[in-house]
Amino acid sequence: MVQTAWAWVGVAPFLVFALMFLILPTLYLVVGGFQDPDGNFTLQNIFDLFTPSIMSAYWISIKVSGASALVGAVIGFGLAYAVVLGGLPAWIRPTLMTFSGVASNFAGLPLAFAFLATLGRTGLVTVLLVKFFDFNIYATGFNLLSFCGLTLTYLYFQIPLMVLILTPALDGLKREWREASEILGASKLQYWLHVAFPILWPSVLGCTLLLFANAFGAIATAYALTGSSLNIITILLYAQIRGDVLHNPNLGYALALGMIFITGLTNGAYIWLRGRSERWLR
């Protein structure tokens, strides 16, 4: 018994740190979300989240994160498939992995600057398209400081992230399964429909959810790109922390609570799906 008590001392610093700088601060906001200014229990803040301005902020965040996660997952899957199973030269895979490691970490403000310099009104691609194809993307209504622009920018770290986290799953597809299905007379389509896809879908969906959560909590890129013209939830929360724009601190806590709720749900589903996929992909 004394032994076990001593053993706990070894992890005490970590647990104290986690409690003080991770769990308690979050808990403070969660509890605050259910309180009125006098500290009494209330659900009013939660109801107040359903006002149009706040709902639209959540909704734009969900749309941008969802779109960038979906498109990122599809393109990322294509790339991961190409290097793992596509019969490309062997040197391409480690190169792509290194590139992906860099690109998935190239986020925040510099990423916004890069896209402004590329697809902004005087950016290289914009200018070249006008010069060589007489095609002005801004004449089509495109705007980098919008839903489309932000999604396009997020894809820059979403695609490589998908490549990084999905490759192990594709590696887990055993050659024997394919051979066995071929011997049994299955077509390529049948193999994918009845063997590979049922095994892969939890990983693919799980990775997509991770991409969603990754984009949902991001702020710096959007802030630098759109200022406050695109009111995503993180930017609204940022403004609330800086200057109580909602004129109700407890509503601010509820705002944070809503974010935790969404990312928590996403991650919970991811963990559940990972449990499913690990049954096959060992």
């Binding site: 991770l22 949902f216 909590g217 993180t234 944070a256």
Partner: peptide
């Protein structure tokens, strides 16, 4: 403390669940 591993791992993953802006908001309060 092998039996503690799931708990510790869960805690280390929390920063991926709780957005950075929420954590710092909590600090400020």
């Amino acid at each position: 403390l092998r039996k503690l591993r799931p708990l510790i791992e869960f805690v280390t993953l929390l920063p991926l669940v709780i957005p950075a802006i929420v954590i710092v908001f909590g600090y400020l309060r």
